[in-house]
């Protein structure tokens, strides 16, 4: 059994595990018939669509199986940050005093999914929208720009989010 086949089987199994977790969350019952049904259909769906869920080149060490307990903390942190910056945007809307600029910076994250999560978090936080993500280069539209210097702007926008994400996807 060569490496490609092994990786294929791993991808199918991981996809079906994720799908089954989703099934359990939606049905919320421990009825054996429903569980067997869910298992069957998640394996069937995984067989059909594993190449869409997990790309063949996406084989980082912690890219797919990550530290879930830090991810929960990260979501709570994101919620807090969202409310904090949302009040800032509210204040700016009332005063009508905005200073929008486009800033460019780079990220140190390696895996694709971590980069996508970072981009999504930046867009989710009010006041910043990611215009483009090209490999590790981000272009961000910033509503209340304090600086246009690439490194400081990056530190102010992604700062702590990147540090936590680095610990999730090692």
């Amino acid at each position: 059994m060569n490496l490609a086949v092994k990786w294929k089987i791993t991808r199918i199994m991981l996809t079906s595990v994720y799908l089954f977790a989703g099934w359990m969350l939606f049905t919320g019952s421990l009825n054996p018939f429903s569980m067997v049904m869910g298992l069957f259909f998640s394996i069937l769906t995984a067989l059909l669509t594993y190449s869409l869920f997990i790309d063949e080149k996406e084989a980082e060490r912690r890219g797919l199986v990550f530290n879930i307990h830090i991810l929960v903390f990260y979501l709570l942190f994101l919620l807090f940050k969202m409310y904090a910056s949302s009040f800032a945007v509210l204040y700016n809307v009332i005063r009508g005093n905005i200073n929008p600029r486009v800033v460019h910076f780079r990220t140190r994250l390696k895996s694709d999914i971590a980069r996508v999560i970072l981009t999504n978090s930046i867009t989710l936080t009010p006041g910043t929208i990611t215009l483009s993500l090209d490999d590790d280069h981000l272009i961000v539209h910033w509503l209340e720009a304090k600086t246009t210097h690439s490194r400081y702007a990056g530190e102010l926008i992604k700062g702590k989010m990147e540090k936590i994400l680095k610990r999730i996807f090692v």
């Binding site: 979501l75 929008p100 486009v102 999504n120 989710l124 215009l131």
Partner: peptide, 24 residues
């Protein structure tokens, strides 16, 4: 959490690709 930023990003990307100059 996943879908809302993606839609905002797509609109912004379209505007950026069409070279609409941001107000300053």
């Amino acid at each position: 959490f996943i879908s809302s930023p993606v839609s905002a990003h797509i609109i912004a990307l379209y505007a950026w690709k069409n070279e609409i100059i941001p107000w300053r």
